[in-house]
Design a binder for these strands. Structure first.
Length: 448
DNA sequence: GTAGGGTTAG
């Protein structure tokens, strides 16, 4: 039944428009799915150009480099700093747009504080900046882990002082900042202000960010209300502000998180019937949604369709499926897919390994998990903090206390630290009656 | 050709 509904959900949009509404439950031919996948947008980043070298036209080469790096970021911070200082000394100076591209490249590298420092230097040197520069730096303040949101708002003041008029991007960035700093009330207040403000009207991105905030905040009953509010808000979007696939993705994800998979499918159906193109992220959300809503068979069918149509040459989508299989107690299938990744031309990344290590530990196969960790340690895919915390978690669950101690020590050597989950497991262990030598050793470790 | 939106591991 579910499978039929799922197939029809995928099929309906590929009928001609005139007949699409007739019956979305009639056409279930697999070949019709091809059209779905042929419409999906694949994001293929441009190949990275070589770093700036001697050239007969250094100016032009630098400008090209800035454009390219604004899309993908510099390979390292030193390169970005080198370019910045080169730019400061150029005569005639480069345009503000080129400085903006440099700042955007730093944002892509998540080097927010460096971008803010560069902006300050530009201001001190009286190098012209524009609204894009301010908006980029406001974003940096909103993204920074330390609470620099107040600074973002003072930049808003600075902008106005400089004679620049904040636009919808400025306010949208600030709303996102408030939401990400867990200030939903202030975000909503600012959003409502925009709605009543004549000069700047929220656009589809603003709505999308607010909807995303509603879908992400809170647990339980409150969450249900917020997701409903998000759906209402999408319906209330003014005519002409057509929600993009990103807005659909946000709400579909929110619905799946709530366990409202039927509504999630309906919304996906609506996306298709509106003529929108699902993208790779829609596919990831659906696959993950099926996996986490006890619909592993649907997930496998969906994955098969994507695979048939060649749109999933992407390790991330495999990670979602492997995780789903592990969580649905289908370890053999998960292991099989993992072992065949290389032959499919894909390299498992650290997330893939962590997922499988967790799955193995969950099934009591701690030795096999350890073997996988050992393989990672001598491979190009080195374990990270999640890997260690995962396997330590597994060792504790499997009562391998001595092993856990060794792993904790190794983790320390690698300069990773125990996360909240690992620490709380150790506290639980110490509070039990089981006071064997290893547990006592844990106490020593914990009190260090 | 410069700025703001969506997904996956513990």
């Amino acid at each position: 039944m579910m499978k039929m509904a799922f197939k029809s959900l995928l099929s309906c949009r590929f009928l001609p428009h005139s007949s699409a509404a007739v019956s979305s439950y009639c056409v279930t031919r697999v070949d019709s799915h091809f059209h779905l996948f042929s419409t999906i947008t694949n994001h293929n980043p441009k190949p990275k150009p070589p770093f700036i070298a001697s050239s007969p036209r250094p100016h032009a080469q630098l400008q090209q480099l800035l454009y390219d790096k604004s899309k993908i970021g510099f390979d390292n911070l030193d390169d970005a700093l080198f370019v910045f200082h080169k730019m400061l000394n150029m005569k005639p100076p480069l345009s503000v747009m080129k400085f903006n591209q440099l700042l955007v490249a730093l944002v892509r590298m998540q080097k927010y504080s460096v971008a803010v420092s560069m902006f300050r230097e530009l201001r001190v040197l009286c190098i012209p900046v524009n609204i894009v520069t301010f908006n980029t730096i406001i974003k940096c303040c909103c993204c920074h882990l330390n609470n620099t949101l107040d600074h973002a708002f003072s930049l808003l003041g600075g902008m106005i002082k400089s004679g620049l008029v904040p636009n919808v991007v400025t306010y949208t960035t600030l709303i996102k900042g408030l939401l990400s700093q867990d200030r939903p009330v202030d975000a909503e207040h600012l959003f409502k202000k925009l709605l009543t403000f004549n000069e700047v009207q929220p656009n589809v991105v603003t709505y999308s960010i607010v909807i995303d905030g509603l879908c992400k905040t809170s647990n339980g009953y409150c969450k249900r209300q917020k997701v409903d509010k998000a759906i209402d808000l999408r319906r209330q979007m003014p005519e002409g502000l057509k929600p993009g696939v990103e807005t659909y993705n946000t709400i579909i994800h929110g619905l799946f998180q709530m366990g409202r998979h039927g509504e999630a499918r309906n919304l996906f159906n609506e996306l298709l019937s509106n003529g929108d193109k699902p993208d790779i992220i829609t596919c990831r959300i659906l696959l993950d949604g099926f996996c986490k809503n006890q619909q592993i068979d649907e997930a496998i069918s969906f994955f098969g369709l994507m695979e048939c149509n060649g749109i999933i040459h992407d390790i991330q989508i495999y990670n979602i499926l492997i995780d789903g299989l592990c969580k649905n107690r289908k370890l053999d299938e998960a292991r099989h897919i993992f072992n065949n990744l290389v032959s499919r031309g894909l390299q498992p990344d650290v997330v893939t390994h962590n997922i499988l290590i967790r799955g193995l530990c969950q099934e009591g196969l701690f030795e096999e998990a350890k073997e996988l960790l050992s393989k990672m340690e001598v491979s190009s895919c080195l374990p990270n903090d999640v890997t260690y915390n995962t396997i330590i978690h597994g060792s504790l669950v499997n009562k391998k206390y001595k092993e856990a101690l060794v792993l904790i020590e190794t983790m320390r050597t690698r300069r990773f630290s125990a996360d909240a989950s690992t620490t709380s497991m150790v506290i639980d262990l110490l509070s039990t009656e089981e006071q064997d030598q290893s547990v006592l050793a844990f106490r020593k470790w914990f009190l260090q």
